[in-house]
Design a protein around this nucleic acid. Structure first.
Length: 257
DNA sequence: GTTGAGCGTT
């Protein structure tokens, strides 16, 4: 059975939660289970995923039954290379409900602060007050934590581009990196598909996607606003209006909404 | 070609 997290938390009355960080974005609980189960009795393995995309967020939670085993797993698996990435195993600091946790063990049921359910970052991150110069150099270190683009996406496509928010990415994505022995197992499963993606086989037959090759840039307007996309306004086609017969004009006299 | 430095779900 490897359906962790499928039906919510089983029982965390006496379990020790370990937080596994730095796991690859394609690592699943099934991959971590055998790894952690080797060092102790794993009660549950849960990997938070994105609600919209369903991708892993890069970390997982492994619940052990005994603290000594959990501790051992932390020492043994912490720093272990999984899927080509070095994972970090440590005791969870917060519980599934923001309850305080000590050594992975839940101390109190649920500590409910006034109003606020739980804070995302209760403690300040590594504060490094360096010279301003250093800040300029480390400007690369943005707050982009993976799902940064997701948020932007959801805001932008709130009710505008909701139509094609379904199959956006392939389930297989692109795996082909140095994998472990589980690779074979996974590959076998994928083979059930039969042939590769039949869709998108040959590119556009048009070898010249840029018809404006011989067109000199004389189209550019002096005001700097060149027509990127010629307004396909049907005005020139039918200045009179819509062509009859194409679409029923829908008699509005029936209902006025 | 796909991010990353963080605490969780029926």
């Amino acid at each position: 059975m490897s359906h962790f997290g499928r039906s919510g938390p089983p029982d965390i009355k006496d379990t020790y939660s370990l937080l596994v960080l730095n796991v690859t974005f394609r690592t699943t609980a099934d991959d971590l289970f055998p790894l952690f189960d080797k060092y102790g009795k794993v009660v549950d393995v849960f990997i938070p995923r994105d609600r919209r995309t369903g991708d892993s967020r890069g970390f997982a939670f492994v619940r052990y039954k005994y603290q000594d085993e959990a501790q051992k797993a932390v020492e043994k698996l912490d720093g272990r290379v999984v899927d080509g990435r070095e994972i970090m195993v440590r005791f969870a600091k917060y519980g599934p409900n923001a309850e305080r946790i000590d050594k992975g063990r839940i101390l109190e049921p649920v500590q409910r602060p006034k109003g606020r359910s739980r804070s995302r970052s209760p403690r300040p991150r590594h504060r490094d007050h360096r010279d301003k110069d250093s800040r300029r150099r480390s400007r690369s270190r943005s707050r982009s934590r993976s799902r940064g683009r997701y948020e932007r996406d959801q805001y932008r496509g709130r009710d505008r581009d909701n139509r094609h928010r379904s199959r956006s990415r392939s389930p297989d994505y692109h795996r082909g990196r140095g994998r472990g022995k589980y690779d074979e197992d996974r590959r076998s499963r994928s083979r059930s598909h039969g042939s590769a993606s039949p869709a998108r086989r040959s590119p556009s037959p048009r070898r010249s996607p840029s018809p404006r090759r011989t067109t000199p840039p004389r189209d550019a307007s002096p005001d700097g606003r060149n027509h990127k996309d010629r307004s396909p306004t049907p005005k020139s086609i039918s200045p009179r209006g819509r062509r009859a017969g194409s679409r029923s004009p829908l008699p509005r006299s029936d209902a006025d909404d």
